[in-house]
Design a protein around this nucleic acid. Sequence first.
DNA 1: ATTTGTCTATCTACTAAAAGGTAGGTATCT
DNA 2: AGATACCTACCTTTTAGTAGATAGACAAAT
Lengths: 186, 186
Amino acid sequence: MPDTRTEIIRLGDKLIREQGYNGFSFTDISKVLGIRNASIHYYFPTKTDLGIAVVKRQHEELNQIVRNSAKSDPVKQLSRFMDMYNTLHNDGQVCIVGSLATDLNTIEKPVRKELKFLADDILLWMKTILEEGKKQGIFHYKISSRAKALLIISNIMAALQLSRITDPGDFDLIRNSIIKELKTGS
Amino acid sequence: MPDTRTEIIRLGDKLIREQGYNGFSFTDISKVLGIRNASIHYYFPTKTDLGIAVVKRQHEELNQIVRNSAKSDPVKQLSRFMDMYNTLHNDGQVCIVGSLATDLNTIEKPVRKELKFLADDILLWMKTILEEGKKQGIFHYKISSRAKALLIISNIMAALQLSRITDPGDFDLIRNSIIKELKTGS
DNA sequence: ATTTGTCTATCTACTAAAAGGTAGGTATCT
DNA sequence: AGATACCTACCTTTTAGTAGATAGACAAAT
């Protein structure tokens, strides 16, 4: 039997990605789990508490992935990075950083703080991948590694959002273009 | 005296960009304008009606800009394009396409339809700028013009969101990197 | 010139539903 | 007996929206 607390976090995550932070309620979660609204509050007294937990869990999952692929070559690591977003795209979801960023002025400070930790670590990982790839002569770019990391992350983040509107195929187009430009240096 | 209808649209636009579609209410608007909630409904019977109007107005403004800079050289046009986002960044706002994309599953179909019209036209303009710049030998890229346009738009769109979280200065870093890579071909 | 009617933009005063949250009870397991 | 994981039954505030009144502007008819 799956742990209720974990299930709530999982559903909160899903709902934030699909409907936005202000687009879901505790009742949405309780209906799916077949329990009462108040039971959600037993685990997470406030929506802010749930928001924090969702971001933290995401951060833990990222750390796991980073650790597991730390010894892989840069191309494989980049691939692993892209896979995360590919999965989201297949489920019609967007990146949690992007979703919460658009609602940032309506979410509480503790959630923002966790979100910044997460965003900084995503950025750090990409920067590390890029630097190693450049050192090995696999990746080519002239701007700073941090700038290039920002470009790639913003590309893939917005690809999830934009492709929802323009054409689902645009996600792959953007994804493949990023990799191509990085490998050929233009 | 400013037209109330126009003021409502202006405020709706501002609130969507600052708080997200589900993060503002008609009361937020009525309070600022010093009129009653019901008076907003006089102009826009439903929130969906306001949403449509906001996106349409944004589209009209885009068309105006495109027309006004149609005869400028590609560098100037790119500059004009970037200026739109720079202004938003200075006001702490995000792109309307990005804001509505994260809430897409909670907004009504007519709004989505208008949003797609807008996104397609932004994409078309960027593609046109890029092709002209490439023809003149000013811009350099090897992928398709549509793909490059998608990359640039997703970059600048997410730059507004990401820089809210990581560091406001990251917006300029991304903006300048896009232009640099485009001009030097890497 | 004054009355009459209509239109516009606002108001007061509601309503129903949903959101976020609380207090306190109960069943079960250890 | 105490902790855990629920429950029922509330509450308050906000949200989106409606019905119907009113006050002023303006034009046409008397």
